[in-house]
Amino acid sequence: MTVAQFFGCGMITFGPPLVLFIITMAKDPIRVIMLVASSFFWLLSLLFSSMLYKVVGPLQPYLAFGALFSVLFQEFFRLLWFMLIRKAEVGLKKVSEDNLEIIENKHILAYVSGVGFGLISGAFALVNVLADMTGPGTVGLYGDSPSFFIATTFTSLAFIFLHVCWGVIFFAAMHTRRYLLIAYVIMSHLLASAITLLNPLYAVTVPLVWLVLVVTAVIALCVAGVSPASVRNSLKFSDRAYRVDAVDVGATDSRAHL
């Protein structure tokens, strides 16, 4: 049972992002490197926020404080990461000469770094819980909710997806200087985090977090320029023609650079 639960919960949380990774990133080394680097940035943000948490001893019982600052740190490091990518764009162009896709379509990098942030935050939220899942022991013997694990799992998944959407929105907003969207990212991050503060009330928190996710996802899709028509297009498997175009553009471009 415990092992089954371990695998089930693990798959729920990490299955979807893993599929995203395999389908959209695993083939392109640059994307994988970007993924790892962005998760490194998230790690740095966590490090700083937990340092702060450690330093202010008296406030340690109030997790809300730690969560608040952690969210701010994360967004700050997202900004830093964005600036770094921007600085490195020239180099990136050189490195990825064969597929300029990654430079031309800014959303790709945004999405990749969003997944990076999401994966590592999901990992940090869940791995130790997962490790505990394999037993020995059972949840709920002392009157705790028996759905502890499953709630954690679904919330983690929501946060992973939220990070992806936030990444896309944030980067697009920075590129086009729509600061309202940045404010939305920060506010919705704070909101989602605040919702989970209520947490033993799973019936409230999990649906609310997913609601935030749906809203954010819609905004992210709009920002990325997804329309019903483009969805239909992409479902027609016409991406082969698309890809050839991209290669064409990239190739002629690199010629022009020479």
Partner: peptide, 14 residues
């Protein structure tokens, strides 16, 4: 670790 453990046991997500 202390921070993350607190977060995980209180189920607060960041």
């Amino acid at each position: 670790v202390p921070f993350a453990e607190n977060l995980a046991s209180e189920q607060v997500f960041i």
